[in-house]
Write a protein that binds this DNA or RNA. Structure first.
Lengths: 120, 120
DNA sequence: CCATGAACACGCTGTTCATCG
DNA sequence: CGATGAACAGCGTGTTCATGG
């Protein structure tokens, strides 16, 4: 919703949200697992989001009506209850992905220009 | 100095500082002018840093011993006093530029991978 | 102990206010 | 009014604490 007159770079929360959506489309995991996957994915970039940010991102996605919760008993474990997430509204997913594409491209271009200006 | 175990993207302040250094190497302007140039440069990316961030960045650069102040009477104007900035320590400039190169490349790569992962 | 989630604290950044010529 | 700078406020994010199985 909110259009920003002036923003430097994309906020971490928005970044995590689009990444979580994208992951949820492929495989249903639970919060902690998503965190592990993301940390592993971005290890070489030294980016290690903490668990709170993941949960807050997931919470917002549910609040936005994009994802839905699905409680489940963790396989192989005694009685550990975890929360899986499924896509709830594919139209909203499409819209959000489109919006974030614009934003990520903007940031990518901004950084690229800076690197060009300063180091070339 | 501070090594961060986990950072998402470069902070605006660091971004402005390296940009200001780079500009100060080419032409000596004063705070407000630097802001105008930067805004103009990044207009197409919708990035419009406010004057406070510019001044705080310049202040930090002086505190770091990288830039030096040089008060001056604005040309053509009645008695407007402005502050110009000159490079004080070229070694520190080199070091800072090198450090920021690493950081900017990191962010650029991180965003690139995300765009790749999500949209390709 | 593992996963989830809430509460709390802090740092970065934007907005507003103050000064000076 | 143009430039500089300080004070203040809000928000995003990291750290810590709490709950449940």
């Amino acid at each position: 919703m909110g259009e920003h007159k002036s923003r430097f770079l994309v906020k971490q929360r928005a970044f995590l949200k689009i990444y979580l959506i994208s992951m949820a489309e492929k495989e249903q995991l639970y919060g902690k697992k998503y965190q592990e996957v993301i940390i592993n994915k971005f290890k070489k970039y030294g980016y290690k989001p903490n668990h709170s940010e993941i949960y807050k991102s997931l919470y917002e996605l549910i609040d936005d009506g994009i994802l839905a919760r699905k409680e489940k008993v963790k396989e192989g474990m005694k009685y550990q209850k975890v929360v899986n997430y499924i896509i709830k509204d594919t139209d909203k997913v499409k819209l959000y992905k489109k919006q974030l594409k614009v934003e990520l491209d903007r940031c990518y271009g901004l950084l690229g220009q800076a690197i060009q200006d300063i180091y070339k």
